[in-house]
């Protein structure tokens, strides 16, 4: 039974008023340790602040791509498998959107590619890749799409710095408000 200190409740009662506007109301739930949060937090945002230590380049990634089974579903060249393609068939089109729905090309941040591989790959062995392998695979996929050079090492610092081809050329979302139509001026 994880119950936090009853002190805040006692304090509130002593005050006799809801003085702690920011304080807990029910005192239910347990305070997790910093290590616990770190271990569970696999949401890698655009700044990359959650990235774990590790590093890898496309050279190691090319090996991991074969040994970790990626090629089995995505094809040896990333375009000839049963799973979604990982390399554009139309790589020179100046419009990135026209190059296809390809994660390492269309993701607005390299951190999105890292997050995706780390969570969801490889099929049926999710969560088994080491941070070095995820850095290396990310580097490999960015390399085969012409985003970074083959020898570039990706790590906590360099990964979030990668300039992705999409840039900010994607739709931002409207401010969501309750009880409003989903798109202003759209009658349907």
């Amino acid at each position: 039974m994880g119950s936090r200190s009853l002190l805040p409740i006692a304090f509130t009662l002593l005050m006799g008023v809801p003085a702690l506007a920011q304080g807990p109301t029910y005192g239910i739930g347990r305070t997790p340790t910093a290590e616990e949060i770190r271990a569970r937090d696999i949401s890698i945002g655009p700044t990359g602040e959650e990235l774990p230590p590790g590093k890898g380049s496309a050279r190691e990634g090319a090996i991991a791509y074969r040994t970790k089974g990626c090629a089995g579903c995505h094809g040896a060249a990333g375009i000839d498998g049963s799973a979604p393609i990982l390399k554009s068939r139309n790589p020179t089109n100046p419009n990135v959107w026209a190059r296809g729905r390809i994660l390492p090309l269309r993701a607005p941040f390299a951190t999105t590619v890292w997050d995706y591989i780390n969570r969801g790959m490889p099929l049926n062995r999710e969560g088994t890749l080491t941070p070095d392998e995820v850095y290396a695979l990310t580097a490999y996929l960015l390399f085969i799409n012409g985003v970074i050079p083959e020898d570039q090492v990706l790590d906590q610092q360099s990964l979030p710095q990668v300039k992705m081809p999409l840039g900010d050329n994607y739709a931002s979302l409207p401010d969501w408000k309750p009880r409003t139509p989903r798109l202003k001026g759209y009658p349907y």
Partner: peptide, 11 residues
Amino acid sequence: MNYNDFGHLDQ
């Protein structure tokens, strides 16, 4: 821009 968010990207 995590896992499912990529699928929601639009031009």
